[in-house]
């Protein structure tokens, strides 16, 4: 099914916003304005956006340490995201979580996560809640190639398969887990091949092509929504920056990096929509500008926001603790 014009615009807008957001955070980290562990999503935009384009606001997602892209694609307020990354009181988590834990329960965004492989069990829970309540909500569970070697991943696929849970497991195979490439860390060529062990569909797509991701996700989401159970969807992709900010990136070649950048998801999209006459040069330029403005506002918002009061450290541990 062709993608509607408004959706196409949304896809372009979200991909641009993620890229610009990440480039900005990269610069800010390099300038020493941001503390902690920061993992950037630049290069992988097509997966988050192509998947989320098929989700509703009331659907849920689980994320990873590399979560900014998932947040933006799920509609988390970028003012609150940026403020969180600086540790400001107006941040999505009031400064308690930082880059690695941005969440927005009102958007069904169950949190970026510092524990590799922690998302799949949580996704099973979100999907179970939907199933037991008889809603048709779907959960998308994002995780990396490295996470697919974690026991929690395998246990969750099994659980989701026997209970026909409405989940799309979205493997973001960006070739590396830190410095460790998938040729070393697994014997099967594709993460999706592992679906066989759990009797569910396993699908591999080009994760640099948002159209391909969109189509595959559409099918997997529809299947989940109809109560037919989970799908394991794998997007082959690449992260442009290091594993985390500060990484020296000695484990991959410049040629390899370039080979992915040549297929950049945003440039590819740009080219294709023009070639096929789906969007005009003007429309794209306008979206580009809009995203600049959105990011600029977020920067102003974050900069103007106060830090939390130190005492706020003590709040939010429990709902009630006499």
């Amino acid at each position: 099914m062709p993608i509607k014009k408004d959706r196409l615009k949304w896809i372009y807008e979200r991909m641009c916003l993620i890229r610009k957001f990440e480039d900005h955070v990269h610069d800010e980290f390099a300038a020493g304005a941001i503390a902690g562990f920061v993992h950037l999503y630049a290069g992988e935009e097509a997966i988050a956006v192509g998947t989320m384009a098929n989700l509703r606001d009331d659907d849920s997602i689980t994320s990873t340490h590399r979560g900014h892209g998932h947040c933006i694609a799920k509609g988390v307020d970028i003012n609150a995201m940026l403020a969180e990354i600086y540790g400001k009181a107006t941040g999505a988590c009031k400064g308690k979580g930082g880059s690695m834990h941005i969440a927005d329960m009102t958007k069904g965004m169950l949190g970026a996560n510092g524990i590799v492989g922690a998302g799949p069990p949580l996704a099973c829970g979100a999907a179970l809640a939907a199933k037991l309540r008889g809603t048709d909500q779907v959960t998308a569970c994002f995780f990396g190639d490295g996470a697919s070697n974690q026991g929690t991943f395998h246990e969750s696929l099994n659980l989701a398969s026997i209970w026909d849970l409405p989940i799309v497991f979205v493997a973001e195979n960006n070739v590396y887990a830190e410095t460790t490439s998938t040729d070393y860390s697994m014997r099967v060529p594709n993460i999706a091949d592992r679906a066989v062990a759990y009797g569910i569909p396993g699908v591999v797509v080009d994760g640099m092509d948002v159209f391909a991701v969109y189509d595959a996700a559409a099918e997997a989401v529809a299947r989940a929504r109809k109560g037919k159970g989970p799908t394991l969807l794998e997007g082959k992709t690449y992260r442009y920056y290091g594993h985390f900010e500060g990484d020296t990136i000695l484990y991959r070649t410049k040629q390899e990096e370039q080979s992915y950048k040549d297929r950049d998801p945003i440039l590819q999209f740009h080219k294709r929509v023009l070639e096929e006459g789906l969007l005009s040069e003007d429309q794209l330029a306008k979206i580009d500008q809009q995203t600049d403005t959105t990011l600029k506002k977020a920067k102003i918002f974050a900069a103007a926001s106060p830090f939390p009061e130190p005492q706020e450290c003590l709040e939010d541990v429990y709902v009630k603790y006499p």
Partner: peptide, 16 residues
């Protein structure tokens, strides 16, 4: 530290 998880914000972490 107080009986809380470790907070992110530099201001909160310093307090912690």
């Amino acid at each position: 530290p107080p009986h809380t998880p470790v907070p992110f914000s530099p201001v909160l972490e310093k307090f912690y």
